[in-house]
Every structure is written in C-alpha cells, then in structure tokens.
Write a protein that binds this DNA or RNA. Structure first.
Lengths: 199, 199
DNA sequence: TTAACATACGTACAGTATGTATGTAAATAT
DNA sequence: ATATTTACATACATACTGTACGTATGTTAA
C-alpha cells in the first residue's frame, strides 16, 4: 500500500539514518546508493525522488550530524554563567560530540571534499562555528579577550578543534586522556587571547 | 621509438604535473584520468603502468605539493637564529605556500578524503607537520614553551594553520591582509604556550 | 650477436556507479 | 467522482575506473 505524509517523512528520515551509517562506515565515495536503498527496502527511484542526487543525500546527513553536535555544544555552554567557562565547556563538548560514532568522517573529512569548502564553511557557520564566533564576539565586547579579528580567531580555534577531533578519533583507545591533553593545550592557547584585566 | 630511463622519468613527471593541474582545478573526484593522459599524449594504459591506480597518481601529486610547501617552510625558518622567530616565520611560510596556486585543495581538502586521515596524517607528519613538531620539541627543551604534550600542541597548531589556509584561500582578493590577521592571532595563541622566563 | 627478458606503452572490454526518463498505483485535492 | 499530484519502480543511458592482454622497443648476458 501507499504512504501518507507522516509515513513519507519517516521514510526520508530512515534513508538519512541508513545513509549516515554507510557514509561513516565506508566514506562518501565508497558508499553505494544501491546498498543504501536496499537496506531501506526501496529502490534508487525512491531516493532520487526525495533527494536531488548523492550529494543532496550527503548534505542531509551532514546537516543532521551538525545539528546533533551543535546541540551538545549549546547545552554544555549553557551550563555555566561565566563566559570563559562557557567557551571552554563548549569546546570540550565539541571534541566529544564530533568524535562520537565516527561523526568526524562526515563532518571533517568528507564534508569539505564533497560539498566544497565554501559550501561546507557556510553550513559550518550556520551550526557549530557560529556559536563559537558569537561567543568570542560577546567576550570581546566584555573586554575578556583581546581586540583581534574575531573572524581570524574563530577560524584558528575552529581549526584547532577540528584537527584535535581527528587526532583524538585516531586514539580512541586512550580517548579520555587525549581529550584531556587537547583541552589543556586549548586552554593555554586561549590564554593567549585573554585580555589583561586593568579595572 | 622507445624511451630510455631519463625520458621515462620525464614522462612520469609530466603526468604528475598535468594531474596536479587537473586535481587542483576540478578536484579529485571530477578529475578524469582520460583527460589527463590525453593532455600528456598518452593513454590510460601508460598511466596504469606508472601508477597503481587513480589514488596512486594522487598520492604522487600530493607528495610533490607537500615537498614543495615543506621547502618553503624550512627555508623561512632557517632565516633566523631565534627559535621563536623560526617558529613564527615557518608558520607564515606555510600559510603562504599552502595557499599558493590552490595547493590547499590537494593538501587539505582532497588529501584527507582520498588518502584517508591516517595515511594523510602519516604523509603530513613526514613533511610539514614534522618540522613543526621538532621545533616545538626543541623549544620545549630550551624551556621556551610550557611543558605540555608536544603531540597535542602540534595538532592544535597545525589545525589552526590548516583552517587558516582555507580561510585565506577564500579571501584571495585581500590575501595579504587576511594572512596578516591570521598571523596576528597565531602569534597571540602561541603566546599562551610561552613559558614565563624565570632566570 | 643473438636469445631471453623487461619496459613502456596501446587496445579492448568488463564491471560498477550515478543519474534520468518514463510508467504506475495510491493518495489527495477539487 | 474525477483530476492531479505524490511516491515510488523500472529500464536505460552514460561515464568512469580498473584489468587483461597484445606488442614493439630497449636491455642484458651468454
């Protein structure tokens, strides 16, 4: 029998979830649409009805992962009232969230290559990067960090964390320790941006 | 007529150079081997004689670019006797070299996606990342930077610079200014690692 | 000098993947 | 109740990589 609106949405979500598994497991290039739809009990016709093409499917997966990790970050930051703590907590949440279930492959490896860096960056700014930027902006206005280019700081810090995630992901055996090391370095790096207080 | 050793080497180098152009212009996935060999006046048979597969060709290109940029970095660092200056100069040289002629697409976008992050990291460590790590190690032994995990610092800084490169590459219209901004932030971040002198 | 072998290709084809055009039955709108 | 849109399936066109195989030319050693 045929599907109604709600069931259709369910079908789409199911496709995205299955695709997510395939993309994380095999990487974008080696993930086969045929395999994905087979697992969903459909054919490629269905997939091309819901998504423009393979890249479109990947984009949907990418956004889902971004949103998920972004949620962690926001939640972690919201747990503190102190701006500096918010920043640090957000960073740690990002490290942990991005490492989780090989999200980093979608977020950091295939993301830029498949979407192109500019598209990737726009997406990234919409989600995780934006909160970092706003936090830095706000802290700068509070005179908590030095009056440097917020844009530049955001990119440098974001880059640090992205690479840290990939590094951590390759040492999952001692994950907590490596996260700790990374966070220590990050905190020290951030100290370099802290404005000397002269009340 | 048949080719001798030297001519063969020339053919291989030519293929690498042409492939490099195609990879930077179209990206790995959209670069066609057929087009590459056509431009070289050969067929795919020749290519598969010299390289294992498309990935093998990309690896050769990747190594060539790495070596090139690595050369810039070493040269820039060697221009100073002061460890701190060496580090900063090396960083700047990396930013400039990696941005040059869209090298960033091969080095930072397709590199990890095509080779896989672990292979990519091994290559990167062999070339550019290694000099950074050794510099940090040496500076730590001189008590110039804090006794944090050199590994962690290397990854965070390397990540910063990689992302900075991509950012710069997307603002080529005001390239020098953006590089300046990035370097300013980088210098401040590095300050966070500097050991307070207590002689 | 010539026989044995390696090298450097070219050619043809197989396999696999994406993407597109078209058909169709069910669901929804009118 | 009928028309139209939706949600797929099917079949096919296209493009690309990779591989098997053939061949002509260099190279080396007997």
């Amino acid at each position: 029998m045929k599907k109604n609106k709600a069931e259709t949405e369910q079908t789409v979500q199911n496709l995205i979830n299955i695709a997510r598994h395939h993309f994380t497991a095999y990487g974008y290039a080696n993930a086969s649409l045929e395999e994905i739809v087979k697992e969903a009990g459909l054919t490629r016709g269905a997939l091309y009805h819901h998504f423009k093409n393979k890249k479109g499917l990947f984009l949907a997966v990418f956004e889902a992962v971004q949103e998920e990790v972004g949620g962690y970050v926001e939640a972690a930051a919201a747990q503190s009232k102190d701006s500096w703590d918010q920043l640090v907590n957000g960073c740690q949440a990002f490290l942990e969230g991005a490492v989780e279930s090989h999200n980093q492959r979608i977020l950091l490896i295939d993301g830029p290559a498949v979407l192109g860096w500019d598209t990737f960056r726009k997406m990234d700014e919409k989600y995780s990067m934006n909160s970092l930027k706003e936090q830095l902006q706000s802290m700068q206005e509070q005179n908590l960090i030095k009056p440097l280019s917020v844009e530049a700081m955001t990119h440098c810090l974001s880059g640090s964390m992205n690479e840290a995630v990939l590094w951590i992901a390759n040492h999952l055996d001692r994950k907590t320790d490596v996260i700790k090391e990374a966070m220590t370095v990050l905190r020290h790096l951030l100290e370099g941006l802290r404005e000397e207080q002269n009340t």
